[in-house]
Amino acid sequence: MSITQQPASASGSFLLGGDLPVTRLGYGTMQLTGPGVWGDPKDPAEAVRVLRRAVELGITFIDTADAYGPFTADLLLKEALHPYPDDLVIATKVGLTRTGPSEWIPVGRPEYLRQQVELNLRHLGLERIDLLQLHRIDPKVPLAEQLGELVALQNEGKIRHIGLSEVSVAELEEAAKIARIVSVQNLFNLADRSAGDVLAYAEANNLAFIPWFPLATGALAGEDSPLTKIAADRGVAPSQLALAWLLRRSPAILPIPGTSSVAHLEENTVGATLELTDEEYEALSHAAG
């Protein structure tokens, strides 16, 4: 199909773990839940349509987590797309437990991580998880025990690759002594680049860098903002520019913008086709630098 029909393909591809090709522009499922990432969405049918449309638009990388709902996003994925297309890679996460809306508690006990991996497999309808990410490191449990359990599950054939989320470079270096880490998922966007050192580590070590909250452009949404001005000049949405900037910022970056609306999904995905001029890229880079 053409880029017009599958705009996500314009983002290029990344070889996850050296053996798993994915479109660099992916999709994140967190918004396919109720308020506070808790319970069912207001319109489950639209959520299913969003997931099916994502695949039609050429997206082959979907990021989810057992904590979204909990399990709401996993079950919607299964309903919408199972049996999954051969080229679809589903990344999920374990390590946070939910006690209510907007409440997130790290739990890294090995038996809990194993239980959640098994539940992910069941709810997603998978025999193996392509990318299993530790959602947060539990400070009460030695990292070697947390990652050691994921390595055990990997050796059992239930996990293909292991990633981390919201970690420092020091934690990545410690983790690399315990397991082969192929990805890191940290907060990063045009307005917040505090994880730049983690991105540099990812680039140097062939890790995928998956920025969550990639469209946090509120800090740059004012009338005098370069983001607003360039978007108006080009007749595009600010969110599309923010994604174009991320895709250009580093070949290791795999943005996963989420939405519960097909219209917003289509708008975001077109961002993969935008090419920034050097002047536009520099103006955006300096906007919150």
Rank of each mutant, 00 (worst) to 15 (best):
D63P: 05
T64E: 12
T64L: 09
D66K: 01
F71N: 15
F71V: 13
F71D: 15
T72Y: 11
T72A: 04
L77S: 01
L77M: 11
E79W: 01
A80Y: 08
H82W: 15
P83V: 13
P83L: 13
P85E: 04
L88P: 03
L88N: 04
V89G: 09
K93Q: 10
K93P: 12
V94Q: 04
G100P: 11
P101E: 10
W104I: 04
I105Y: 09
P106N: 13
P110M: 03
R114P: 12
Q116C: 11
V117P: 00
L121N: 00
H123E: 10
D130H: 07
L132M: 13
L132S: 02
Q133S: 08
Q133K: 04
L134C: 06
I137F: 01
P139N: 03
G148R: 08
E149R: 11
E149I: 12
V151N: 04
A152P: 02
Q154I: 13
K158M: 00
K158E: 00
I159N: 08
R160V: 03
H161Q: 07
L164P: 14
L164G: 12
S165Y: 01
S165T: 11
E166H: 06
V167W: 10
V167D: 07
V169D: 06
E171T: 05
E173P: 09
K177V: 10
A179Q: 10
A179K: 07
S183K: 13
L187A: 14
F188L: 10
N189M: 04
D192V: 14
D192H: 15
G196F: 02
